[in-house]
Design a protein around this nucleic acid. Structure first.
Length: 445
RNA sequence: UCCUCGAUAGCUCAAUCGGCAGAGCAAUCGGCUGUUAACCGAUUGGUUCCAGGUUCGAGUCCUGGUCGAGGAGCCA
C-alpha cells in the first residue's frame, strides 16, 4: 500500500510512489497515451497513463473514466514544466488506476455556459477551477477575520438569528411564525453585541444575516455573512484605526496564502499589495463636493444625471463608484447626515444633523464593505431617537437599559464577507463568492 | 417596484423580406506517444418558453403571460 497524499503537498513527494484519491477533472487522449487531470479538493495534477507502462486492464479502465468520475490513482511523482494544474509543474507517472464510480454524462463541459444554467448546477459548479479558487479564498478570509480579532483581544459571541423586531427598523426582514408570535430573521447582531461588551469589553459576532430586500444587482444576496465587532471605550477615530488594520490583515493573509488561487483568477495582486494602513478619510461634506465637481466636469449627460446629489442624500452606487475611482485604497466616508443613517448613531459634537458614522468603500466599484459608527451612549438621546424613528419602545427596553447601568462610549462596525471576497478576488458578481448563494430569484439548490 | 434586453438540440449560439430547423461543443464509435478548452473522420440529437391571434404559410409579426439577465432604488 503506497501512502495517500494530497495534491497541495505534491512537491514534498518528488520521486516517490504515491496514491491520490479524487475525481477526474478533465482528460485528453492521444491513442496509447492518456492525460488525466485529477483533482482531490486541494489541487489538480496531471496523471499520465502510458499503454506500455501499465497492464492492459488498467489502461482500459482508465480509458472508460468519464469527466468527474471518482478514482484512486497510484504512480510516481515527477517534475515536468509542461504539466498543468494547481500548483502545477508536477505530474504522476501512473502505475495503477482504480475507478470508484464512473460518472454519468457531466452537464458542465469545459466550454462556455450561461449564468442560469450554472446556477442550476451550482452543486457541481463549485468543482470548477474558478469557483474552487474563489471559495478557497473565502475560507481563508473567514479564517483571517477570526485570527485577527482573536489575536487582538476580541471574544466571539453568538447573537440570535431569531429576533423579535428590526435591529435598525429600516431594511425589510424575513418574517416567520414563532409559535404564534411574530419573529424575524436577524439582519444584524449589533444591538446584542452592545450588551455583550458590557460583559466582555471587546466582542464580535460572525454568522449569516438576512435581508428581504428586492435588490437585483451584482452586489446583493438575501442571505450573506457578516462579521460585527463591537468595542467598549472606543470612539470613532479609534474605530477607524481598528478597521484599517483589520482589513489590511485580511488582504495580506490572502496574498500570502492564496497566491496560486489569485493567479488562477487572473487577479492583479499589485493593486492588493497597496492595501496597507492608513486608508484615506474624507468627510461626507467633502464627498458631496467631489461628486458635484465630477458631475460638472463630465460630458456624458447620463453620467451627469446619475451623479446628481444634494447635501443630505445617501449615496447610490454610481456615487460610490465615482468616489472610489479617486483612490487606490479603500476610502472612509466619515460623518453622514443623521437622516440617512440608523437611529443609534452618536450625533457629531456641535453638528446634530451629522452623525459619527463611517462607511468603508472598496476600490474598483465594489461598493461599501464596512458600515460602522460610534453608538449613542446617553439614555435620553437614545430614547428620543427611538421616538423620532417611530420604533416600538417596548422592544428596546433592554437596549435602553444598557445606557442606565454603566454606559460607556463605544463603537463597532459590520463587514460583509461576500463583498470583501468579491473585491479581493475581482469577481464580477457576488453570487460566486458564496457556495450556495440565496438571491431574489433563487433558493435552489 | 421601475427601466432595458433576452428565451431555438444536453450546452453556447445562428437562421436574410414571413418561405425546407443550422453550426460548434458535449455524447457515442473509430484513429493518434506530450495533450493544455487537443486534433482528424463518422453517428446521434428539435413541443423553436406558454396561451391565443394575423397569414396560403410564423422561430420570425401582433396581444397576454411565465422565466431569466443587466441596471436603478435600497443596502453589507
Amino acid at each position: 500500500m503506497t501512502p495517500i497524499i494530497r495534491i497541495q503537498d505534491i512537491a514534498a513527494h518528488l520521486g516517490e510512489t504515491v496514491t491520490l484519491q479524487g475525481w477526474l477533472y478533465a482528460r485528453t487522449d492521444k491513442g496509447k497515451l492518456q492525460f488525466l487531470q485529477v483533482r482531490d479538493g486541494t489541487g489538480v495534477v496531471q496523471c499520465v497513463v502510458f499503454k506500455k507502462d501499465v497492464p492492459e486492464e488498467v489502461f482500459e479502465a482508465a480509458a472508460r473514466l468519464t469527466q468527474e468520475s471518482s478514482l484512486e490513482v497510484t504512480g510516481t511523482v515527477r517534475a515536468d514544466p509542461r504539466a498543468p494544474g494547481t500548483p502545477g509543474g508536477f505530474e504522476l507517472g501512473v502505475s495503477d488506476v482504480r475507478p470508484v464510480q464512473v460518472a454519468t454524462e457531466y452537464p458542465i463541459t469545459p466550454k462556455e455556459h450561461g449564468v442560469e444554467f450554472l446556477m442550476d448546477w451550482r452543486h457541481l459548479w463549485i468543482r470548477s477551477s474558478r469557483q474552487w479558487a474563489i471559495l478557497r479564498i473565502r475560507a481563508t478570509i473567514m479564517r483571517a477575520i477570526r485570527e485577527w480579532l482573536d489575536g487582538n483581544g476580541f471574544l466571539e459571541m453568538s447573537t440570535p438569528i431569531i429576533t423579535p423586531s428590526a435591529a435598525e427598523g429600516t431594511s425589510t426582514l424575513f418574517a416567520l411564525d414563532y409559535f404564534g408570535e411574530n419573529a424575524y430573521l436577524a439582519q444584524s447582531g449589533q444591538l446584542y453585541n452592545e450588551a455583550n461588551i458590557g460583559a466582555f469589553g471587546k466582542v464580535y459576532c460572525f454568522g449569516p444575516t438576512f435581508r428581504a430586500e428586492k435588490s437585483k444587482t451584482r452586489r446583493h444576496l438575501t442571505e450573506f455573512w457578516m462579521v460585527e465587532p463591537e468595542i467598549a471605550y472606543c470612539d470613532l477615530d479609534q474605530l477607524l484605526v481598528i478597521e484599517e488594520n483589520f482589513v489590511s490583515h485580511i488582504v495580506q493573509t490572502v496574498l500570502r496564502e492564496r497566491a496560486a488561487e489569485l493567479k488562477a483568477l487572473g487577479r492583479d495582486t499589485s493593486a492588493l499589495e497597496k492595501m496597507i494602513p492608513p486608508f484615506p478619510r474624507i468627510t461626507y461634506d467633502d464627498a458631496v463636493e467631489r461628486l458635484r465637481k465630477l458631475a460638472a466636469e463630465t460630458d456624458d449627460p447620463e453620467q451627469k444625471e446619475l451623479l446628481k446629489i444634494e447635501w443630505g442624500d445617501d449615496f447610490g452606487s454610481p456615487h460610490e463608484t465615482a468616489l472610489t475611482k479617486q483612490f487606490e485604497k479603500p476610502v472612509f466616508i466619515v460623518g453622514y447626515p443623521t437622516v440617512v443613517k440608523a437611529f443609534y448613531m452618536e450625533p457629531w459634537p456641535g453638528r446634530p444633523e451629522v452623525c459619527k458614522s463611517a462607511d468603508l468603500l472598496a476600490p474598483e466599484g465594489y461598493g461599501e464593505i464596512i458600515g460602522g459608527s460610534e453608538r449613542i451612549s446617553d439614555h435620553d438621546t437614545l430614547l428620543q431617537r427611538i421616538h423620532d424613528h417611530k420604533l416600538p419602545v417596548e422592544n428596546y427596553k433592554w437596549y435602553l437599559d444598557l445606557r442606565k447601568y454603566g454606559t460607556v462610549p463605544h463603537s463597532g462596525f459590520g463587514l460583509g464577507v461576500e463583498r470583501t471576497v468579491a473585491w479581493i478576488c475581482g469577481t464580477e458578481h457576488i453570487r460566486e463568492t458564496n457556495p450556495f448563494p440565496r438571491m431574489l430569484q433563487r433558493s435552489y439548490p
